[in-house]
């Protein structure tokens, strides 16, 4: 897993996604599930002949719903903006309650 990855965005979104275009099979469940609708389907086919989900960019809240509905273990990685006072040993996965509250959006 990647921790403390530094990336540059034009807008300071709370969340950010990395979608593995070789693991994704293009089922589209994440696109359907995403509350702020920041995921889209690629036009290009990948090596295996699938159109795959792509991160469309602006507006991601890092809620993690896309990760939960995705059937592939590592196709989606959800990043969230670091905040102060986060415990050093905190678990990699966000709390379930927070995810649910996003899911209700």
């Amino acid at each position: 897993m990647v921790k403390g990855e530094r990336i540059e965005t034009k807008k300071q979104d709370r969340g950010w996604l990395r979608i593995d275009g070789e693991e994704c099979k293009g089922c589209g469940l994440c696109i359907e599930a995403c509350p702020p609708k920041v995921i889209a389907m690629s036009e290009e086919l990948n090596h295996f002949g699938y159109r795959t989900a792509i991160f469309a960019g602006a507006g991601c809240t890092g809620c993690g719903v896309c990760f939960m509905v995705c059937p592939e273990p590592g196709a989606i990685t959800v990043f969230r903006a670091a905040v102060r006072h986060v415990e050093a040993s905190g678990h990699a996965n966000a709390g379930i309650e927070e995810a649910i509250s996003c899911a209700s959006n």
């Binding site: 897993m1 921790k3 059937p71 989606i76 990685t77």
Partner: peptide, 28 residues
């Protein structure tokens, strides 16, 4: 410039690569 950490990712109870045929070891 903002720092991001992984909030949701591959669980560590999964293998990083699967003992499947050569080309398919990264997907189920």
């Amino acid at each position: 410039v903002q720092e991001y950490t992984v909030a949701q990712g591959r669980a560590k109870s999964f293998y990083a690569r699967y003992a499947r045929k050569e080309e398919l070891q990264h997907q189920t």
